[in-house]
Computed example of a mutant assay.
Amino acid sequence: MKRKRFISVFLIIAMVVIALVGCQDNSTEPVKENETKSGNEKTDGKERPDALVIASGSSAGTYYYMATGQSKILSENIEGLSVTNEATNGTINFDLASANVDTIGMGGLEQFLSAVEGREDRGYPVPLDNLGIIQTGHKFVLYCVTTANSGIETLADLNGKKIGRPSLTGSSTPMIDMLYEAYGVDPDTLTETPSTHAENVDALKDGVIDAAFVAGGVPMAGVTDLTTTHDVKLLDIDEELIAPYMKEHSYFDLITIEPGTYNKQDKPVNLLTVDVLLAANMNLDDDLVYEITKTLNENVDEMALIHNDGSQWNAENTLNVYNKNIAPFHPGAARYYDEINKKE
């Protein structure tokens, strides 16, 4: 009897073990050597995701409109790739791209260089040196607007005034600081109110401030609103005065907006500007970035239909930065621009 019980117990245990083995989940296949767990293909240690995100700006801003167009163009023209646009505050885009291979960041050239170099005074205590440019595009333009009866004729007259300036630590901050230095404006004499562009426009309308720094494209909706509803003027930048400072900071430039760009603007106005760009993680697959770069530069006409400044996202503008050798480019993008340079 004991022997029969022993055999029965053994058989029961064996059946339980077999049942447990049979119930194991075999639905998850082993991750292939050339793939990540998320399904992103890996080539030469770099990742080729099938979905990308462009981190842009606020949903009402120029960055967002540009990224929406770029996402559409890339999704429609690169097989197997889906690209979406993500609204952000604009200042975290390079951080996001540095931390995530599937994220492309949009921002200003000066901000990009500050991130790559790890400038703590610009909010980058650790260098984001794993980023490379894909393409440069429209200009980020800084305006200084004042009321016609403010007594302010040049930027030098800002001393002792109430000033509205952007609240975010983007490219506006070093541009304003450079203008203060060039024109001898002492920040200690100013009453500065950091606010959004919309809030600064409203404050100028209401007479709360004497002048406002606002930034965007050409034309800019807030400036158009001001010049249409109020008697205001745009402060011009003296080209000779600012030249030494721009030589030191070669990523900044001057543009001239022609008379008639804004209501009652009867003279050309020089404004400080910086290139806006797209940057990717260096671990994003080189061939994919080459495809992205080629596709964007071959669909400039479609970008022009999306926004007035869309046509500025082109190879010619990008080569102006690429050939200066002042900023790192992604190897996939560099291959494309090298090909263009050889043709010229």
Rank of each mutant, 00 (worst) to 15 (best):
N93I: 03
G260H: 13
K264R: 12
K4M: 11
P331H: 15
F213D: 09
V145W: 13
M175C: 01
P331R: 15
K46C: 01
V300Y: 14
A333G: 05
T28H: 07
L284D: 12
G207H: 01
A280Y: 11
K267F: 08
K32L: 10
G132E: 12
T88F: 05
L20D: 06
D25W: 05
D231V: 00
R335M: 08
I92E: 15
S38T: 08
L131A: 08
I92D: 12
D286L: 08
E41D: 05
G207V: 00
L226H: 11
D266C: 07
E33N: 13
D286V: 09
T229P: 09
K42L: 12
T169H: 07
L74Y: 14
D102Y: 11
Y180I: 01
N149E: 15
S71P: 04
V53W: 08
E302I: 02
N149P: 07
K342A: 11
N297D: 14
N317S: 10
D129E: 13
G260D: 14
A333Q: 06
G160V: 01
A182M: 01
E35T: 11
S171V: 01
D286W: 11
Y65K: 04
L305M: 09
V185G: 06
T147I: 02
D188S: 13
P194G: 00
T273C: 12
A211M: 03
Y245M: 04
N299M: 03
G107F: 07
N281H: 15
D186L: 10
A60S: 11
S82G: 03
N323E: 15
L204F: 09
N299Q: 04
S172E: 15
I7P: 03
